[in-house]
Every structure is written in C-alpha cells, then in structure tokens.
C-alpha cells in the first residue's frame, strides 16, 4: 500500500472499515433494516453489516453498523489552516512580553449575545484556568478583563475601546441553528463600522470553531475545544510583537 494514500483502518491496512450510528424514522423490523442498508449503499459503502437495531419508540429506530468504504485521501493534498505561532508556557509568555513589548497586554473577553455558557471564556481568562493551566488573569503581564456571559456586541466593543484593548476574545458555545456564526459575524461587522477592527486582535473560540472558520469570518485567529490559555496567550503576544516590529 502506498503511504500517501489514506483509508480507514479496522484491523488490516487499507480495509476501509468504518463504524456508523444513525437514526431513521422507520420501524425496528426487517423493512427498517433494509432502509438503513440502502441508505448506506447510497453513501457508497459496501460490506454493510447492521449489527445493532434499537427501538427508539415514536416510530424511530437507531442503527449501529459497520461498513467498508473505498474512498481514500491523498496525504500530500491535505492543507490545514492553523495558528502557527510557537506555543510558550505562562512564565515564558510573561518573559516574552517584558522583553519584546515592555508593557501589559490588555485583553477583553466575553460570551456574546445570547450565549450564557462561560465555560470556554473562563477556562482561558479566569485565574484558575482549566486542567492545571492557569488563565490569563494569572499572567503578570496580562490585564485580563472577563465580561462574562450574554454580553451584547456593543458592550464588548465599547469596553474594548475604553480599555484600549490589544485583543478581544469571544467565546461561543451554543451552536444550534448556527447561532454562533450569526453572533460572530455581527461582532466583526460592528467592529468594522466602529473602526475598531484594525486596532486590536479579534480572536474567537468554542467547540465548533476552527482557525479556518475564524479567518473566514474575518477574525485573526480561532481556537477549538481543548485549547489552553497559554496557547492563546502565545498567539497574542507573538502576533503583537510582530506588528510592533513592522511599525518600527
């Protein structure tokens, strides 16, 4: 098998085995099972085994299946947009700011609009941080202002201007009906109208946010779940230092 061609792996190289689980509005009988099989066939699967059939009531059935795909990926053609600045630890970040910027970095963060879930913004900004990685409040050279949940875009931008912020951090956890896209777009459009967009870094984060999506929406960077404060901090300080160097 060529190493640059990628296929799913079950227990043999290139066997193309995948595991699937889905629900159909069909009864849990042979007819329903056949419907599930045909659906998988239409998706291009072969060697379909429907191994689990669970009655969900109200006319729905849950199927668990294994199947074989012949789809494959050419490894050399995969391109991922990601934050490329080096990642430093907290102490290193503080040291970096002291040496390269020489003043405190102000960051204003919030969960905007309807979003009431602060778990993300708190993990990045609060003293305590997450999983033994301290948040930005703990950093000596950061002035971290966490506005909390359900902050209107206007209020966040107003505060960012008032504090002369270096970066705005936005968290969006609720994503039903793509509400996060709507909220994030609104913020960036307002920032442009208020001529703040180019004065500071705009960074977003959340379980359904990728760097690629963030760039697409007009942000400087985006971070997904599992990101720690030091990763965000590293990005901010390195990017700001670069900007400073370009100016001088």
């Amino acid at each position: 098998m060529k190493h640059n061609i990628i296929l799913p792996y079950g227990d043999k190289s290139g066997d193309g085995k995948v595991q699937l689980s889905f629900t159909l509005p069909v009864p849990p009988d042979d007819w329903g099972k056949e419907a599930a099989k045909q659906l998988l066939k239409q998706m291009g699967f072969e060697g379909i085994i429907i191994c689990g059939v669970r009655d969900l009531h109200e006319g729905f059935t849950h199927f668990i299946a294994y199947a074989v795909t012949h789809c494959s990926i050419d490894a050399s053609k995969i391109k991922v947009k990601k934050v490329e600045t080096p990642i430093m630890e907290m102490e290193e970040v503080d040291e970096f700011i002291r040496e390269n910027i020489g003043r405190k970095i102000t960051v204003v963060g919030a969960c905007i609009e309807s979003d009431a879930h602060t778990v993300g913004i708190d993990a990045i900004m609060n003293m305590k941080g997450y999983n033994h990685r301290y948040g930005l409040e703990r950093y000596k050279w950061f002035n971290a202002i966490n506005l909390g949940a359900q902050v209107p875009c206007e209020e966040l931008l107003h505060r960012a201007r008032e504090e002369n912020a270096d970066a705005v951090l936005v968290s969006q956890v609720v994503t039903q009906n793509n509400i996060h896209i709507h909220n994030l777009t609104r913020l960036i459009e307002l920032a442009e109208t208020e001529k703040l967009r180019d004065k500071m870094l705009f960074i977003c984060g959340g379980p359904k946010i990728s760097h690629e999506l963030a760039i697409e929406l007009g942000y400087d960077a985006g971070f997904g779940s599992g990101t720690y404060a030091n990763e965000v901090a590293s990005y901010i300080v390195v990017t700001l230092a670069k900007k400073l160097a370009q100016k001088s």
Partner: peptide, 25 residues
C-alpha cells in the same frame, strides 16, 4: 413532544424542557 414521549416510553420518569439560552435574562 416527540422526543419526550419516546424517552418516557423507554423509561424516563422526569422530562425537563431546557429553556432557550438567554431566557433567564
């Protein structure tokens, strides 16, 4: 209603309808 009934038939004793985010405010 569809989801709650399905859950109740499967054995749920209590159904909570989560509120839309921000209704509390």
């Amino acid at each position: 209603v569809v989801q709650a009934k399905a859950a109740a038939y499967e054995g749920a004793d209590i159904i909570a309808v989560i509120r839309s985010t921000a209704q509390s405010l």
